[in-house]
Design a protein around this nucleic acid. Structure first.
Lengths: 95, 95
DNA sequence: GTTGCATTTAGGGCTTTTCCTAATTAGCCC
DNA sequence: GGGCTAATTAGGAAAAGCCCTAAATGCAAC
């Protein structure tokens, strides 16, 4: 859960997941969309993967990244709880 | 918007806003709830304030921090767009 | 096998974040 | 005003994050 919000905290990573909204993309397609080196994008993809915001799957000789909605929903649940929509006491303890 | 998610990316700051859910609290009350120095908590409160997640108001000799729901809702909107609930193309450009 | 393409790992530099202690400001109350 | 309490700013050390280039891996196709 900590890695979830940490993953969402970087503009490039938010843009990546927004790109993935309309369907899976290969690492190359994603890297091409940014003005930074491919390895740097890989780093961001790893962060997203660790947060379980994306999953990977091999497709021929490329690898497809798919958005995992369930992780997005987890973040949504936290925020909705905050905004009074929900009542549960969902919270991560200990710093 | 970037500072919003960055503010949400730290466990202590998420706990602070969760505490504030049930009503405003003084800086001292908040600091007392954590096992860290008061100035460190002040730093986190400043981050939340910069993200406009909290607002301040003097109350006698203490200062009250209040949760600003509108900022939470902004984050909610972004995530709902991602999860397919909405259709708008809200996105922050340029890293 | 080996060549070739897509992607990742390794290593390093630079900036930012996080946390601390010590010193300082801000405002209430007598 | 003067003292007290609440809260902040200053300064600095340690850790984490971000980005790069160069080297390595994984598969597929020949």
């Amino acid at each position: 859960m900590n890695s979830l919000f940490k993953a969402l905290s970087h503009p490039v990573r938010r843009r990546i997941i927004a790109m993935l909204r309309s369907g899976p993309l290969s690492s190359g397609d994603i890297a091409a969309a940014f003005d930074m080196s491919w390895p740097t994008v890989t780093g961001h993809l790893n962060a997203l993967k660790e947060a379980e915001l994306v999953s990977t799957e091999r497709e021929g000789q490329s690898i497809r990244y798919r958005l995992e909605i369930s992780a997005v929903e987890e973040a949504l649940a936290f925020l909705m709880d905050l905004s009074g929509t929900g009542k549960t006491d969902e919270e991560d303890k200990a710093p």
